[in-house]
């Protein structure tokens, strides 16, 4: 086998794409990724030390969670990874791992199942990670007023709330740009 001929490796950066099951995470990733989205699995042990705010103590179980991801080459030195993760899994190493070092997160909302993105919103708020809530317009329709969605999610005015189409490359690009501008704003205000 020949040694590698590549002399430089890019610096990886990442944006997290979160949201409930079937909300369009993988669609969004595949719309803009330069590679066909890949899927990997993580074994998640829900630890009993994590007590839900409702007082419910989850049983200690091991489940497998799928992680779909893609990437965009920014330039020779930077490669942007997009990691799509199910919003309902806030236990285990995956959330912490994903959030650490992330530029920001895009939380995708399906207005028919708004509650499914609560855990993600909650997590990013607590982790102090810049995030944007993006309503995926299924079939181009918005079933709730944006103001109502903001109210339902109980997110502050500092959190951008946008609509987008996960199937459209430029729409996904613009959603990611909104995330990055939120990150930039945070970085310059510190």
């Amino acid at each position: 086998m020949k040694p590698s001929v590549e002399s430089r490796t890019p610096t990886p950066v990442k944006i997290i794409i979160a949201g409930g099951f079937g909300v369009g995470k993988t669609t969004a990733v595949s719309s803009i990724s330069e590679i066909t989205p890949l899927r990997t699995e993580a074994a998640i042990t829900t630890a009993s030390e994590d007590v839900d705010r409702t007082g419910h103590v989850p049983e200690k179980t091991t489940t497998t969670v799928a992680l779909d991801f893609g990437c965009i080459t920014i330039d020779d030195d930077i490669k942007l990874y997009l990691f799509g993760t199910p919003g309902q899994d806030r236990f285990g190493f995956m959330w912490r791992d994903l959030a650490r070092g992330a530029l920001g997160a895009l939380v995708i909302v399906d207005t028919r199942r708004i509650d499914e993105c609560y855990p993600a919103v909650d997590y990013f708020e607590k982790a102090g990670l810049p995030f944007v809530v993006a309503v995926n317009l299924f079939e181009g329709r918005l079933s709730h007023a944006v103001a109502d969605i903001r109210w339902a999610l109980a997110i502050g005015d500092h959190v951008p709330l946008i609509t987008f189409d996960a199937r459209a490359k430029l729409s996904v690009r613009d959603a990611l740009l909104t995330v990055l501008r939120t990150t930039l704003e945070r970085a310059t205000s510190q």
Binding site: P12, V13, I74, I78, L180
Partner: peptide, 20 residues
């Protein structure tokens, strides 16, 4: 990944320009 990159405005601006 380089630690603290998310707090580096120049780097974020660079990514924004390329993404645009």
């Amino acid at each position: 990944p380089i630690a603290g990159l998310a707090g580096d405005p120049a780097m974020i601006e660079r990514i924004i320009r390329r993404l645009e």
